[in-house]
């Protein structure tokens, strides 16, 4: 079954209680045609396993990489993605939208 936002947060708690390093990524703002609405979640563990989505698969790879850094340092990050990015050819939203994603570590 497709995991809902609720299942994702429950899973994040489960992962954290298994003593895995876990980061939570949340879509904070969207402009234009963004694939996932504000409030959408992606959770990531220290091994790069992830559940949920913040886009249609366009930027998840980059968010996972950043999230692993967040898990290591414990410092939250605000990420921005859009076609205007110079990295547009690497990561970006082909739909033409822009999104802001907040990535934070789950702390005991």
């Amino acid at each position: 079954m497709v995991a809902s936002e609720c299942d994702i947060l429950a899973k994040a708690e489960e992962w954290a209680k298994e003593n895995r390093g876990v980061a939570l990524a949340t879509v904070i703002e969207t402009w234009g045609s963004a694939p996932r609405p504000v409030g959408s979640h992606l959770i990531i563990d220290e091994n790069g396993s992830f559940l949920g989505s913040v886009s249609g698969g366009c930027v998840e790879g980059e968010v996972v990489t950043e999230a692993m850094d967040v898990i290591e340092t414990g410092k939250s990050k605000m990420l921005e993605f859009g076609v205007a990015d110079e990295s547009a050819w690497r990561v970006g939203l082909s739909c033409g939208g822009r999104i802001k994603v907040y990535v934070e570590k789950l702390e005991p």
Partner: peptide, 26 residues
């Protein structure tokens, strides 16, 4: 986010009660 906060949020949902997580972005 503190795991305790996430647990509180999940517990509210399990009770079918509305709740809001407030994050100061600064």
């Amino acid at each position: 986010m503190k795991i305790a906060l996430l647990s509180a949020l999940n517990a509210e949902r399990a009770k079918r009660a509305a709740a809001v997580l407030v994050t100061d972005l600064e």
